[in-house]
């Protein structure tokens, strides 16, 4: 057991998984990940920007190393094109996004959950990402390892979400957990005549004009993700399960609201994307009221609404202002009339 913060837990997880390369660019609140990597002897390349960071990580991954990069919202936006590229050439990669308040420079030191949709839909075109969002330091350690495993199994980039709160939160972590490590199966470059291209392709040759080939590619990458995602349908269903209210919260918000567990049922998705449709659907059926609390203006809430097929109650936590009494007062006052989509 050691006492570490969230960012260091990610690094410990990466080391445990056998990560061999880190490409990065300093950004609050993710910088300390790169600093810790520098101490630990993993090959580190500090690049000129986030675009170069993710691209050199892709290069290292092609060279046979388990590669990762870590950033925050603004950097994640810059990386998006390369995220799509990594999906296209099907290279394993782990991207850690320590979220802060946006858009633009926003509030760099404050936690936020504003990149939920960016993690899913950020790059252009269709792809199916796998995204995890733990809510404690020990879980960050565990899911850093799982992210590497999933990336290797599915041969695609995996996003590990964190936030400014978890990044700086100190907790005790047991580093000797029993998770198998998935090793690299792909043959590194420099040993054949393969062609890795961002163009739609088939067997090493570009096919940019062939719709049938493109459709089969899209079907394949979606199916691939769902197969891996099924193994990691991770969520937490706790609290007072026989109450009439279900609170859906994830990441750091689920930590703040843990005091309400005595009164309400709690659902916390850990695998954010693909959405836990079946699991949440089954649980939400038993509750009269479903409340979503998140640190953005309602990104995940729409997904939840789409799945449970009824109006729900929504509380937002904006600008990193965590006011627990206000939220609990709000939940107490809910009558059976659901809020409309754009109301407060």
């Amino acid at each position: 057991m050691i006492l570490i913060n969230g960012n260091l837990a990610v690094v410990k997880g990466a080391i445990k998984s056998g990560c061999g390369f880190f490409g990065g660019y300093p950004i609050t609140p993710a910088s300390s990940i790169m600093e810790e990597i520098a101490k630990d002897g993993i090959k580190l390349m500090q690049m000129e920007d986030e675009i170069a960071s993710i691209n050199c990580a892709i290069g290292a991954s092609l060279s046979g190393k388990k590669a990762m990069t870590a950033t925050s919202g603004p950097g994640f936006s810059l990386m998006q094109e390369a995220v799509g590229y990594a999906h296209m050439i099907e290279q394993p990669l782990v991207i850690v996004n320590v979220q802060r308040v946006g858009p633009a420079t926003g509030m760099p030191t404050k936690p936020s959950q504003g990149d939920i949709m960016q993690a899913k839909y950020g790059s252009h075109g269709d792809y199916c990402p796998l995204v995890f969002y733990p809510n404690s330091v020990s879980e960050l350690y565990e899911y850093a390892i799982k992210s590497f495993n999933c990336a290797e199994e599915a041969e695609m980039p995996v996003v590990l979400l964190s936030d400014a709160y978890l990044a700086n939160l100190y907790e005790t972590v047991n580093l000797d957990i029993d998770i198998g490590i998935v090793n690299r199966k792909l043959e590194p470059v420099g040993n054949g005549a393969r062609h890795y291209t961002g163009l739609s392709h088939q067997r090493n040759s570009p096919k940019p004009q062939n719709p049938r080939q493109y459709k089969s590619f899209i079907d394949r990458i979606f199916k691939k993700t769902y197969v891996i995602a099924k193994k990691h349908a991770d969520y937490e269903y706790t609290g007072k399960k026989d109450s009439d209210t279900l609170i859906v919260a994830y990441g750091c918000v689920s930590r703040f609201l843990s005091g309400l567990k005595k009164k309400y049922a709690f659902f916390r998705p850990i695998r954010m994307w693909p959405f836990l449709k079946k699991e949440l659907g089954k649980i939400a059926k038993n509750y009269k009221k479903v409340v979503v609390v998140e640190m953005n203006n309602g990104q995940y809430r729409r997904e939840v609404e789409r799945v449970i097929r009824k109006r729900l109650y929504f509380f937002r936590v904006l600008g990193g202002e965590i006011n627990i009494p206000k939220i609990s007062r709000g939940i107490r006052r809910i009558k059976c009339k659901a809020t409309s989509l754009y109301s407060k």
Partner: peptide, 28 residues
């Protein structure tokens, strides 16, 4: 060009050939 050579060839994103090459070279 890269697609016509019998080597492991990487056709990257627009402008990103150098960082990818640096990643490959540094890792191996």
């Amino acid at each position: 060009t890269t697609g016509y050579l019998k080597l492991d060839s990487i056709h990257t994103l627009h402008g990103r050939a150098i960082p990818v090459a640096e990643g490959i070279k540094t890792a191996n």
